[in-house]
Design a protein around this nucleic acid. Sequence first.
DNA 1: TTATCGTCAAGAGCGGTGCTCTCGTTCTCT
DNA 2: AGAGAACGAGAGCACCGCTCTTGACGATAA
Lengths: 232, 232
Amino acid sequence: MSAGRTARERVRAELTREITDIARRQLAVDGAAGLSLRAVAREMGMVSSAIYRYFPSRDDLLTALIIDGYNALGEAVENAEAACAPGDHTGRWLAVCHAVRDWALAHPHEYALLYGSPVPGYKAPMDTVAAAIRDTVVYGRIVSDAHRAGVLNPPDLCPPVPASFGRDAERVRGLMPGVPDEVVARALTAWTGLFGWVGFELFGQFNNTILDPAPAFEHAMRCHAALLGLPA
Amino acid sequence: MSAGRTARERVRAELTREITDIARRQLAVDGAAGLSLRAVAREMGMVSSAIYRYFPSRDDLLTALIIDGYNALGEAVENAEAACAPGDHTGRWLAVCHAVRDWALAHPHEYALLYGSPVPGYKAPMDTVAAAIRDTVVYGRIVSDAHRAGVLNPPDLCPPVPASFGRDAERVRGLMPGVPDEVVARALTAWTGLFGWVGFELFGQFNNTILDPAPAFEHAMRCHAALLGLPA
DNA sequence: TTATCGTCAAGAGCGGTGCTCTCGTTCTCT
DNA sequence: AGAGAACGAGAGCACCGCTCTTGACGATAA
C-alpha cells in the first residue's frame, strides 16, 4: 500500500510481491502441500535462507496467500453483485453463486486452501477474518435488503426454528440486520448449500455422474433462493 | 478377509493391519500431511524401507486409509438408517444426516481426507469408488423408497429442471431408480447441502458465529427434506 | 566525511521426509 | 533338498523447513 519512502523499502516491497507471486503460481500447480520455500527461492535466484527475511516461516507465506485468496474471491463476488440491479435480489444472489463457483473453478487450489481441509497445524491468524468474510458480507446485505424491501416470503415448509438458535441468530444478524430468526436459519442453509455444491464439484465428489454441472448448479441455487423466500 | 493359509501370509496380514492402525492414529493427530512412513516404521520398531514391502508408496497407504474411512462412514450411515422404521422416510433421512455429522465430528481428519481438499498429486484409484458411495447408496434408497411409496410431494417452488439435466439425471438414477428428474435435482441439492454444512462446521467456516450448531443443523436438514418433498 | 548500526544475501548445517538399491537371511513351494 | 520369492536392515539420494554465522552494503548520525 504505502509507496515506500526509501529505496530499501521499495525493493523490499517489490521482492515480497515477487515471492507471493511465485508462491501463488506454485500453489496453482502443486497445491498447498507442494509449496516450497526452497523452490520459490530457486526460482528467484536466491538462496533459501534469504526468503526468511521476508516471511519468517512457511506458514506466514501461506497466510499471505490465504488472505490474498479471500480478497480475490471477495472482490469477484463484490463485482458480480455490483453489476446487478439493486432491486433484483434474486439476481444478486445468483450472481454471487456464479461468482463463487467461477472463481473456484478458475483457482481450484486456492479455493481448496480457503474452503477445503484446513492445513494441519496451521492456525489462521486474526488478520484473515476480515478478508474471509467479504463474500459473506455481500450475501448478508442481499438478504437484508430483500427483507427490508418486503419481497422475502419464506414458504411455510420448514419447522419452526428452535428457541436455542436465538443467540446464534443474533450473531449472524450482524451481517444481515433486521432479519428474523427463520430467515437467518434458511440463509445459513442456502449459504452452506452453495459451498457444499462447489466443493462437491471441485473435489470430484460427483464422481463422473454430473458431467454438465453448470445448469444443475443454477437450478440448485434457484431452489435455495426459493426456500429462502426470494421471488422467482 | 482370507484366513491366511501360511504363517507368512498371516504375519503379513497382521503387520499390514498394524501399519494402517498406527497410520490412522497418526492421521487423527496430525492430519494427512503429517502422515510419515518413517514415523510409522519407527513406532513399529522397523526400518523405514521395510514398510515398502507392504505399501509401495505413501499414497498407497493413504489410499488404504481413505477406503477404510469411506467404509467406516458408510457403515455408520447404514447402521443409523437401519435403525429407523422403513416407512419413516424423513426419519431415515435425518438419521443419515446425523450419522454423517457425528462421524465427521468424531473423525475430523479422516473426514477431511474424504471430503476435504484432495491430496495434491493424489489420484484416487478405482478401488475407492465402491466404498465411497456406500453412504450415497443409502441415501438413494431412501429417496427411491419415498418416491415409490408415493409420499414424496416436492413443493412447487423450484423452476423446472433444464432439459440438459436429463443425461446426468439418468446416471444419478442408478442410485435412486424410478425417481423423476425434478426429484433427482432436489436430491442433489439436499445431499450437497448436508456435506456443505458439515464442512463449514468442521473446517471452522462458521467462524465462532454458530456456537450451538446441533439444533441449527437439524433444522437445516429438515428444510432440505421439505424442499425434497419428504413429509414433515 | 567518517563511523556506526541495521539490513541483507549467502552458505553451512541440523533433523526430517519419501523413496531406491543392495545385501544377507528366512520362509515356502516344488 | 534346492530354487526362488519374500523379508528386514542399512546406506544413500534428493528434497524439505528452519537456524546460525559471516561478510558486504546502505542509511543515518556525529
